[in-house]
Design a protein around this nucleic acid. Sequence first.
DNA 1: CAGTTATATAATCGTTTACTTATAATAATT
DNA 2: AATTATTATAAGTAAACGATTATATAACTG
Lengths: 104, 104
Amino acid sequence: MEKIDELAECMKLLSDKTRLTILALLKEREMCVCDIVDILDTTQPNISQHLKKLKLGGLVNETRRSQWIYYSLNMDNKPHLQSVMKQLPSMKERLESRTALRCE
Amino acid sequence: MEKIDELAECMKLLSDKTRLTILALLKEREMCVCDIVDILDTTQPNISQHLKKLKLGGLVNETRRSQWIYYSLNMDNKPHLQSVMKQLPSMKERLESRTALRCE
DNA sequence: CAGTTATATAATCGTTTACTTATAATAATT
DNA sequence: AATTATTATAAGTAAACGATTATATAACTG
């Protein structure tokens, strides 16, 4: 039952609201940790720990660019997740509203 | 973020090995509780509780037929789960091996 | 009606999980 | 070199979860 164990592990990654929101955000564009913390209005360690799980599960990639570590979606080789990912709502409004606030 | 909450709930249902195995079994054919208990080699209350969650989540239907309560998959109106369901391994061998033992 | 079979519910226990607070590590800035 | 900004890790805590044991309910059987 290796296959089922793997699938359960993968589903577990997707069974948390915060992680799903992170994935929805990364669907719009890559982001650094502080971006996500800002938008989701939670603590930085909380987001860091969720990102670690997503990275271990192979769902995101990370790239350091000077001080910032950028995370991006990694959905290659995961066609069975695409229909779930499609269920994630757009985060455009939420991103725009944050930018708007910043500019004032 | 109602949508994301719902999705997280749904994924949580799929994030347990026992529940995934039950779903894989029901993909082959409908089954009563004692069938599943028999095959998965666990206790009856354990299976009953998992089935309850699956039923509350709308993933299975139940029908009483005299003493037995038969459970079956309910994947109508859940197209976004089909690709996950496809990932479930076939349970044919496991079903056959049990029948074989029974006949001896 | 008594006993048996099938299933559900309740109570309990140990583990896991998400989150917080505190601290460490790394890089940039002055 | 000291300070600030960004991220990671560690430790602690409360809540959620899966499994077990015990008990209740429902249907069939003799």
